[in-house]
């Protein structure tokens, strides 16, 4: 057991933990988007989908527990590594130009923005859906209410945060492939092809919702 703790708290171990939690969360995003797209089908379809999820009861609570656990351990490992890396680089008037890609360089920053977004996401949508509907339909909360895309500020923040999440995943998914040792095996090209779904198409799917309900629907 002691062995396992030593291994998991080493720099590589922490990164493995980040890779596994990160990929799990990316997979969850696909599932989350599947539900969100019912908004385009229509009000009744979306409401009944949310109702169905609610009927699962404690299964949803267990899933939520793991999601929060994953987000927290992903962020915790990330912060610890960030501090370690900061300490290791002794910067004294260095003229280094650096050749790091933006997605990699700003992963900690974009991750922090995503975390703030998640906090607001839970305190608005999640809280309303579970405890504070006040007679509104789920569809109405998302598309019309002041915590939803009825407010242009919420819509813009949502679009920016999801775009940054995509940017975060661009580095994150490639990085996870390297950490989990996919790179250099015959699965590498399949992995890279699938990764674009997660860092580009899924975030684009999420962004399409505030763009449609927050702006386009209101103009036409």
């Amino acid at each position: 057991m002691q062995n396992l703790i030593t291994i998991l708290t080493s720099s590589v171990g922490r990164k493995i933990l980040m890779a596994i939690t990160g990929l799990s969360l990316a997979l969850f995003m696909a599932f989350h988007l599947f539900g969100n797209l019912f908004l385009f089908v229509g009000e009744a379809a979306f409401n009944s989908y949310v109702e169905k999820l609610h009927k699962l009861g404690f299964l949803i609570r267990i899933a939520e527990f793991f999601l929060v656990l994953f987000v927290m351990s992903h962020a915790y490992s990330g912060i610890l590594l960030w501090i370690k890396n900061r300490k290791a680089k002794k910067v004294i008037s260095s003229y280094s130009k650096g050749n790091t890609s933006g997605a990699a360089k700003y992963a900690a920053f974009t991750g922090s923005v995503v975390f703030i977004f998640l906090a607001t996401h839970w305190s608005t949508f999640w809280y309303k859906f579970n405890f504070d509907l006040q007679g509104m339909s789920y569809y109405y909360v998302v598309t019309e209410s002041s915590v939803g895309f009825g407010s242009p500020i919420v819509s813009i923040f949502y679009i920016v945060a999801i775009a940054l999440l995509g940017y975060h995943l661009k580095h994150g998914i490639a990085s996870a492939g390297q950490t989990l040792g996919v790179v250099g095996t015959k699965y590498e090209s399949i992995y890279n092809n699938i990764s674009a779904i997660f860092w580009f198409w899924i975030p684009l799917g999420f962004i399409s919702i505030p763009i449609w309900f927050g702006f386009i629907v209101r103009v036409i």
């Binding site: 080493s10 720099s11 590589v12 290791a88 680089k89 790091t100 990699a104």
Partner: peptide, 13 residues
């Protein structure tokens, strides 16, 4: 790790 090197963030630099 104990020698104080940072962790890899897969930047490829």
């Amino acid at each position: 790790d104990s020698e104080g090197f940072g962790a890899c963030t897969n930047t490829g630099a």
